[in-house]
Computed example of a mutant assay.
Amino acid sequence: MTRSRRLFVLAVAVLLLGGVGAVLVQRAASRADQPRTGGPETVAGPVTLTAGQGALAFLDSGQGPRRGALASVPADAPDGPRTVSDLTCRRFHAAAGTGVCLRSSPGALAQDNRAVIVDAELRQTRSFPLAGTPSRARVSPSGRLAAWTVFVSGESYGSAFFSTRTAILDTRTGKLDASLEEYAITMDGRDYRAPDVNFWGVTFARDDDTFYATLSTAGETHLVRGSVSRRSVTTLAKNVECPSLSPDETRIAYKKRVRAGASLWREHVMDLGSLRDHALAEKRSVDDQAAWLDDRTLAYALPADGAADRTDLWTVPADGSGSPEPLIPGAASPARLG
Rank of each mutant, 00 (worst) to 15 (best):
R91I: 00
V228S: 05
T297A: 06
G64E: 12
M187A: 13
S72Q: 15
G39N: 12
T210K: 02
S30Y: 09
G99E: 11
C101Q: 10
S321D: 13
A147K: 02
S333Y: 08
V139D: 09
T210A: 02
H222D: 07
P334Y: 07
S156W: 01
D191H: 04
Q34K: 14
T164P: 06
A335I: 01
I117Q: 08
R225F: 01
G320Y: 04
E155S: 12
P329V: 13
D305I: 03
T125I: 10
A299G: 09
D79W: 00
V258I: 13
T186D: 11
G226S: 08
D60Y: 03
A253F: 01
K283G: 11
C89V: 02
F204M: 13
V12F: 01
G97M: 07
E41K: 11
R251I: 01
A57Y: 04
R193S: 14
P141T: 08
H268G: 00
S153I: 05
S244L: 03
L109E: 15
G261S: 04
P141W: 05
R266Y: 01
R5F: 05
T125C: 05
A147Q: 03
A194W: 03
A262H: 11
D271P: 04
G320E: 11
R310S: 12
A218F: 03
G19L: 10
V286I: 14
R31P: 01
A51C: 05
S142Q: 10
A332K: 14
L7E: 15
T98G: 03
T98H: 02
A115W: 04
L145I: 00
P40E: 14
G320N: 09
R82F: 00
L223T: 09
A32T: 08
L10P: 11
R67Y: 06
L7D: 14
G99L: 05
R114G: 07
R27K: 14
D119V: 06
V12A: 12
Q34V: 03
H222C: 02
A146H: 04
P334Q: 12
F161C: 08
A146L: 07
K256A: 04
A262G: 05
D287A: 03
A115M: 07
D312A: 05
V224H: 05
V152T: 15
L87C: 07
E121L: 08
A57F: 03
T83A: 07
L236T: 00
L87T: 14
I252G: 02
R259L: 10
D196R: 04
A69I: 10
D312V: 09
G158M: 06
E241K: 03
